[in-house]
């Protein structure tokens, strides 16, 4: 585990760097939102990709998910699956985009 004093000393620099990167990408998000891409859907997609990247940085570095115990990963994996169900199945059952064409 990276909890020894030397490791922590090293990671302080890392935290500052990540903070900088996060701020940079916030500016990027704001800027990109004013650029009109061919469809607004693309704008949303790009915005969400950047946001997911930022969120991943926070989760991996700040929340130490890059070196966590297997148990935490298990819990989070299940949560992610159920969360995806929450996102996808809601909208699928309302708009029914999946069509079965037959064998």
């Amino acid at each position: 585990m990276a909890d020894s004093p030397e490791e922590i000393q090293k990671s302080i620099r890392k935290y500052l760097w990540i903070g900088g990167i996060l701020i940079f990408f916030t500016v990027v998000t704001v800027g990109l939102s004013y650029v009109e891409l061919p469809t607004h859907g693309l704008n949303i997609l790009v915005g969400m990709i950047v946001a997911t990247f930022k969120a991943a940085l926070v989760a991996l570095i700040f929340m130490h998910l890059n070196h966590e115990r297997i148990l935490i990963y298990k819990v989070l994996a299940f949560t992610t699956v159920f969360c995806l169900a929450l996102f996808l199945l809601f909208i699928f059952s309302a708009s029914d985009p999946l069509v079965f064409e037959g064998f």
Binding site: D96, L98, V99
Partner: peptide
């Protein structure tokens, strides 16, 4: 426990879901 999260809409067959989703549930 796992499956119980993925079956809920069988309470909602009457809401007019598409056939594909109803089949899934």
């Amino acid at each position: 426990g796992f499956l119980s999260f993925l079956v809920w809409a069988h309470h909602m067959y009457l809401t007019g879901m598409g056939t594909m989703m109803s089949t899934y549930f």
